[in-house]
Amino acid sequence: MYSLLTVAWGVMQDALHRKVFYALLAFTLILILLVPLLPTAEVGVQLDLAREAALGLASIMAFLMAVILAASILPGEMGRRTIYNALSRPVGRKIYYLGKLLGVLAVLAAALILNYLVILAFLAAKFRVFSPGTAKALFTIFLEGAVLASVSMLASVHFGPLVCVLLTGLFYVVCHVKGDFLYRAMVDVSNPGALRGLAGFLYYVLPNLERLNINETVAHGERVFRVGAAELLLLTGLAVCFAAVFTGIGMYVFERKDL
């Protein structure tokens, strides 16, 4: 446990010395503050639009941060050979891998908490409203970031950062369209059997990341659909299960890799 936390702490320290971390964070926070410049609408709608835009920006930041950090840590350490110094200690590879992922998730959580505080302050200053409910959307953004980070890190055991980012981007797109596109491709009898089979396989194997997107619901004040504790628990379970599967595969592959 101590080794796990030490490795995770090392990732957080490392992230704080990366320009990409500050660039993404600063870019997002500045854009959130610029949301009032969007085309005006009625006051009530304006608040909803501002919340939706801010959450959308936070999502983009979180996904980029999770994917870029997770994609670059292991290849960077293997390329620079700093991994030898760490793995020559009594630290198992599984612990090392898990510690790196936990570190990425801790950085992501810290960035999202900062986003939350900025969004709260911004909404309070601009609209005189207190919107603690945005935390729910930021939490599911974190869950989706965790799934993406676990995929990106799994890919990074064998591929370089650029390929990992591209693969995870593809994963993100497919997992967001699976409920619609993949489902239709699977059930459409006019499609060739192989295509229907592939679509069906992907439909049942891949997570439906669109399910984790509650930005719109939260932005509109949960007037139509309320996101309760049971729903959040279900979404957490979904994300944890998929992240655990990808992390488990990643640890297995990493443990067998020649460094």
Partner: peptide, 11 residues
């Protein structure tokens, strides 16, 4: 065990 890899590199 203590280990010094060839041309060690650090953060």
């Amino acid at each position: 065990i203590g280990f010094l890899p060839e041309q060690p590199y650090f953060e």
